[in-house]
Design a protein around this nucleic acid. Sequence first.
DNA 1: TCAAAAGTGTTGTCCTTACACCCATGT
DNA 2: ACATGGGTGTAAGGACAACACTTTTGA
Lengths: 236, 236
Amino acid sequence: MQLKKYPHQNRMLVAVDCIIFGFDGNQLKLLLIKRGFEPRKGKWSLMGGFVTPEENLDQAASRILKQLTGLSDIYLEQLLAFGDPLRDPAERTISVAYFALIDISKYEEQINHEYSAEWFPLKQLPSLIFDHKEMIETAKEKLRYKAAFHPVLFELLPEKFTIPQLQVLYEDVYSKILDKGNFSRKILSTGLLVKQKDKERAGSKKGAYYYKLDKRKYQLKFNAFLNFIPNPQLQS
Amino acid sequence: MQLKKYPHQNRMLVAVDCIIFGFDGNQLKLLLIKRGFEPRKGKWSLMGGFVTPEENLDQAASRILKQLTGLSDIYLEQLLAFGDPLRDPAERTISVAYFALIDISKYEEQINHEYSAEWFPLKQLPSLIFDHKEMIETAKEKLRYKAAFHPVLFELLPEKFTIPQLQVLYEDVYSKILDKGNFSRKILSTGLLVKQKDKERAGSKKGAYYYKLDKRKYQLKFNAFLNFIPNPQLQS
DNA sequence: TCAAAAGTGTTGTCCTTACACCCATGT
DNA sequence: ACATGGGTGTAAGGACAACACTTTTGA
């Protein structure tokens, strides 16, 4: 037992919960698991776990993601700490929520699906334990906010993708039809994409060229303001 | 002692630290205090305290602000949770950082200055305990980010203010000279301000009209995108 | 040859910047 | 009267939304 230098203070559990977004080519989805322990065992839940004494919060989030999906090197960003005294009915627990963006096809490649996880369309989520619904709402807002100015959504796509595929993603995130001409010009004008020699053939007769991210420029411009969405009317 | 439902997990201290911004008419400042207890007693520190069993995180931040400044109804927003295992050398402590914007003149009105707090210009901060310097850097970035699109900076001004005063504030926040004509038009075009009958006389011979915030429109448009800064080049 | 989706061209509108200019007033 | 900062006018340039048009190719 560690020596307590602040003897009159209360100690609490600290957890991390991950809101994991994926995109299947048509719509945004969330990865949820059936909770493996009491309370609320068997109910749907975000992926989460307690922070251990040796790790910081980012490390806890990566570890949990790795344990439950098999994936590492995932886009992860701290969302918000949730600390209602009664959020976990069993015991006072602070949860630091993270949101993660993953390439859904990489996840499918993993054989490691022992954790009865399942993808749910964002618009058809099951009921969830604790305040996980609220966390998801906050994450959706933050994703919309961030993606309106920064090229985060590429994290959801495979290495090679077409501009029409990207457009479908943006249209789903913002529930808004975009003009294909203007969209394509805007995306290309960022200089972030490198055109490939080959085309994708399934989606149309003409076929659409594949593109890859220019990794260097992506790093460089990640925090610049790129204005992907015309007149964004976001919640917060 | 509460019954422990998750018997094998570690409990930690959870604190809240507040980054309190103020504006004295010329420059942005931060309110810091001399820490009142060990470890690091007597060193400069952000205002902080431990989260109690009954309160949530927002409530903890408000309570601490009230205790140490005497002020309530302050703009407060959660910034980020900091959780390095060694950030407090005495014992593992997660700290949830908040940033606060206050009208510095309201603070000066308070007689309640028993806590040896002091305003420091942002560019001349003393050395600080733990990871407080990092918290402040993160808060500065977030303030710049937020204020480029949302009218938060009004929280730093008194009820009545002039447009040139507001411009000095924006110029200090972004370390950037703005065109007075364009600035004034842009601010007025938001419809957020109500012109007063009287003028401020100290700053110039002509005098500048006072304005007040239209509270209703301010609430309404707080989350809209208003583009206060031309070509924002922000860090993140 | 036709349909369907990819991709390019074009135009008018609005926004913004830069900067010149006018205004009010204390000294 | 003149210097000083407040405030308005304006013209050039750029960005962008809307939408017409061309291209490619499978059926």
